[in-house]
Design a protein around this nucleic acid. Structure first.
Lengths: 260, 260
DNA sequence: GGAATAGTGTCTATAAGACAGTATGCA
DNA sequence: TGCATACTGTCTTATAGACACTATTCC
């Protein structure tokens, strides 16, 4: 794992953070970066609450350079000439969290001329191609943290660098929409899960309680669940069935595009 | 209007088609281009059929340079450092067709490392941010054409340059999906239109006949139609009402993103 | 009046949601 | 036995589609 980097690093060639006066640094230069909004489900244990609902969290990286030095930003970095866009997203995701995504999708390309302007003139222009990713709850629990990497609740973010608040808002909007008509909720869980856990994911993301009976029927008719034959033990009451995601069905319909 | 250009032009600075040995031309360089898939509704008059159904057409530009010299490609060009991404799409759209879009949306960023490789090595890598656009049928009728710009039926395209066939397929997929849950169909018509015309748009794009009665109800309940009080005369039979699109309602829901 | 399209009414199939009720494990 | 959760059944309501019917204009 290399150092975590954020969007808008000036080094265009081989290694991130190498030189800060490359050819692309000249005035009017246009840089291409890839950033990723990484979502995971976490149970807020700040108050030690036991049966607390899990909520959406995401890791941010503290900027160690102007502009926006000291502000939190999305993990990312310049696109290497030998890697694809999704590869770059996967790489910065791994650099930041040590994790691999269970779901990865391109979100949007942000390229307003003044989006990297922090006030002082002369800043280079950066076009950021942003991805969003989901990581499983079991892996997310052992994600790396450090001085410059911290997880935040998705709905309690501080003022971020650049236009990254808007980017996260858009990623959240997309996630919530997609949650209603696709099967991506599975990507936020572990290998096996109960129907109650799957329902909790939907409730946490969509922000409202769902009827257990109707939810069960909706999931059963989607043909995405495989009964493992096992049950989750250790619960205080009747043990629920454990399911596995049917990997023969894609999480989403990407149309003519190949899956990333 | 300047000359029409396609994706992957090597000139990075002020004017398209100026110099072909700029700094970005060096080995391993990474270029950023913006291309646009432009849709319009046209009645195929190649066979002189009178009451023929309108179908989807799109303009392509013939490449006058290697790689893929002579092949048809999407209109586009390098991103200028002083314009936004949507501005670049609008600009190349105007350069190619002389038109302004009634609807414009970012489609996807294509950036596979080998997407610009035509066989011979040494080609620079290009990341293309692709937009898709809809132009009204009245304007589309007076679109400019030329030796190197030609309109094609969207479902009878030849083998295009680069990965442009995939891009068009994806744009078509997105258009068809969005046609079912948004009001973009209006953007393919003129200022005023009849319900039958609006239904023909849906039928042409979605590729199946729709029940006039049910379609009428669906449109009336969408609150996007304004009765102009006028009727379309000159029809052989009962004259239908003319409607106008209610511009106080957006064509689509873009979430937190500003409309382009 | 006939023909053709504009426009209305109504029935059915399907899906989404509300909610009562049964089943099963542990304290 | 009580209780909490797993799981099932059924009713209501909203919606999409099929299709019969009336209305109006030009020829």
């Amino acid at each position: 794992m290399t150092d975590a980097t954020t969007d808008f690093e000036p080094a265009p060639e081989p290694l991130p953070d190498s030189g800060r006066d490359g050819a692309a640094q000249r005035a009017g230069a246009l840089q291409l970066a890839v950033s990723t909004v990484i979502f995971a489900l976490r149970t807020d244990d700040r108050f030690g609450a036991q049966g607390a609902m899990p909520t959406l969290w995401l890791p941010l990286v503290r900027r160690i350079r102007e502009p926006f030095e000291g502000r939190w930003a999305l993990p990312g970095g310049p696109l290497q000439t030998t890697e694809g866009l999704a590869d770059a997203a996967r790489r910065t995701l791994g650099d930041t969290t040590g994790l691999a995504p269970r779901y990865l999708e391109q979100l949007y390309a942000f390229g307003d001329v003044d989006r990297t302007a922090s006030g002082e003139p002369g800043a280079a222009r950066v076009v950021s191609i942003v991805y969003w990713a989901l990581v499983g709850s079991d892996e997310a629990a052992r994600a790396t943290v450090g001085q410059n990497v911290r997880w935040f609740p998705a709905d309690e973010l501080p003022g971020l660098a650049f236009d990254h608040n808007l980017i996260v808002d858009y990623a959240l909007w997309r996630l919530r929409n997609k949650m209603e008509y696709s099967r991506i909720a599975h990507a936020l869980l572990g290998e096996t899960f109960t129907l109650a856990q799957l329902r909790e994911v939907h409730e946490a993301v969509r922000g409202k309680r769902l009827d257990p009976a109707n939810f069960r029927r909706a999931m059963e008719s989607s043909d995405a669940l495989v009964d493992t034959g096992e049950r989750l033990t250790g619960t205080p009451h009747r043990p629920p069935k454990l399911y596995r995601y049917d990997t023969s069905v894609g999480l989403v319909d990407t149309g003519p595009l190949p899956h990333p």
